[in-house]
Design a protein around this nucleic acid. Structure first.
Length: 424
RNA sequence: GGAAAGAUGGCAGAGUGGUCUAAUGCGGCGGUCUUGAAAACCGUUGGAGGUCAAACUUCCGGGGGUUCGAAUCCCUCUCUUUCCGCCA
């Protein structure tokens, strides 16, 4: 969430930035500023009261020590009044605080200056594209049919075992998954990311830390007995490593990555979006996460985009990089680039990665800070993450784009992880 | 799953109702000495809020309670360790 300090000191800028999302937050911001002012005054009064009580308590201690019991009793009487007042003020203070927080939670991150205005996906700005859309001298088959034809992914068996959206990968299909994961992790390793194998079940605090809770509660699978959540992305455990951490400037940049399965309930999705591998309840993903000094986070964002671009290039997939407009950006992001690959038989662009700079929005909730060498104070760090990459849609595009009458050709970058070069 | 012990500052570790704004040690930072370094010695040493700065408030696993006063007593939750049981 946004910091109150930022809202107060840069009020107009905050409002202007939020306008990029087509949000007029004037009312909320004014309310927060007013409430915060009141909170501050209340705190001052409360502090004074407590100070008075502390002094009195010490005096009573002295009086009792000196056996001046009558005076001590009289002093005790005094504290009763103070206690009453303290209770009232404490309640008022707590109310103000939760009121402020409640509003704060409803305000999304302020988009970066460079983020284009716009309403939805149609207003996203294409940064670059690459690769070539394949042409066929036959009608290309969609991946779910290819999967069946070569018996590499069994959607029906997944339904039997669990339900829709939980496919079972078989034989070369399963091996292809493994190869992709290895490829992504190896590339990440070359780029300096430290590999992690985190828990894929997290507690409530972690859910709040990265902002999945409370807003997206219904999107996560919940183990009620233990109050744990299945992670919707490795971002949750890998970023929460730094919850309540104060870093040194020398620690930057922190570069971590993790392969994990991801679980999403995807309530409300339907139609062609959920066909085949397009949208699943369980899928595999390698996530890259960086924590960076605020001055360098945008440089880092570019670096991460370049990394992901390298992956889709090596996989030889037609891709485009979209800079999301204000209206299409996620709640917590300040800048997001989406990667889409073209899936030739479906004839659609599929989102396979989303690379974002959250600036200090996540850090604020995580209490992820660093000690500034210059000011000697603790300041919020910037967090960034991106998929590098999510498997299912990559697989969908690979199957559809690389199909030939003989079988499906496996891209060269995966050969060293596999003992076959064609799925037939 | 059963039993017991425990959770204190970056780490180790004292403190069991009243200058605890937490001893001591280690580590860190600054200084003296030195050509430089080490050693020795001296000083300093966290987070949050607040203030021009201070004062002040708050934080001894989380929450609640008792008390004029809680790291210290009570309740509760969480976690850790050890032992037993079960087990990949």
């Amino acid at each position: 969430m946004l910091t109150i300090k930022n809202i107060i000191t840069n009020k107009q800028e905050v409002l202007d930035r939020l306008a990029i999302r087509n949000i007029d937050a004037t009312e909320k911001v004014n309310k927060i500023i007013a409430l915060d002012d009141e909170k501050r005054k209340t705190q001052k009064d409360l502090d004074d009261l407590k100070s008075e009580q502390n002094t009195l308590a010490k005096e009573i201690g002295m009086l009792i020590k000196n056996k001046q019991n009558e005076e001590a009793e009289a002093a005790k009487e005094q504290t009763n009044v103070l206690k009453e007042k303290t209770k009232l003020l404490t309640d008022a203070y707590n109310n103000l605080e939760s009121e402020i927080n409640a509003i704060l939670l409803t305000i999304p991150n302020t988009p970066h200056d460079s983020v284009p205005r716009g309403k939805g996906a149609e207003d996203n700005f294409k940064i670059r594209e690459g690769g070539e859309i394949p042409t066929f001298d036959f009608t290309p088959i969609p991946h779910w049919e290819l999967a069946k034809k070569y018996d590499i992914i069994d959607f029906e068996l997944g339904v039997k075992l669990t339900g829709a959206g939980f496919p079972l990968y078989k034989a070369k299909g399963a091996q292809l998954q493994r190869a992709l994961i290895n490829f992504f992790l190896d590339e990440g390793d070359k780029a300096g990311y430290i590999e992690m194998m985190p828990p894929i079940v997290v507690n409530e605090e972690s859910g709040y830390g990265t902002g999945q809770l409370p807003d997206k509660e219904g999107q996560m699978y919940h183990c009620q007995i233990d109050n744990f959540y299945l992670i919707p992305t490795a971002e949750v455990p890998v970023t929460n490593i730094y919850r309540d951490v104060i870093l040194n400037e020398e620690d930057f940049p922190i570069k971590n990555m993790a392969y994990t399965p991801c679980f999403r309930r995807e309530a409300g999705s339907y139609g062609k979006d959920v066909k085949g591998l397009n949208r699943l309840h369980q899928f595999d993903k390698v996530e890259i996460v960086q924590i960076q000094h605020p001055d360098k986070s945008y440089q880092t964002l570019d670096e991460m985009v370049a990394h992901v671009e390298g992956l889709v290039k090596k996989l030889n997939l037609p891709y485009r990089i979209m800079k999301l407009c204000g209206g299409d950006m996620g709640f917590t992001s300040a800048t997001t680039y989406d990667f889409e690959v073209y899936s030739a038989a479906q004839g659609r662009w599929l989102e396979v990665s989303s690379v974002s700079n959250f600036e200090e929005f996540q850090s604020n909730r995580l209490k992820l800070r660093y000690k500034s060498k210059e000011t000697k104070k603790t300041q919020l760090a910037h967090t960034l993450n991106g998929s590098a990459l999510a498997l299912p849609r990559i697989v969908a595009a690979l199957l559809e784009n690389n199909q030939t009458p003989r079988g499906i050709l496996v891209p060269e970058c995966l050969h060293k992880f596999l003992n076959f070069k064609i799925i037939d």
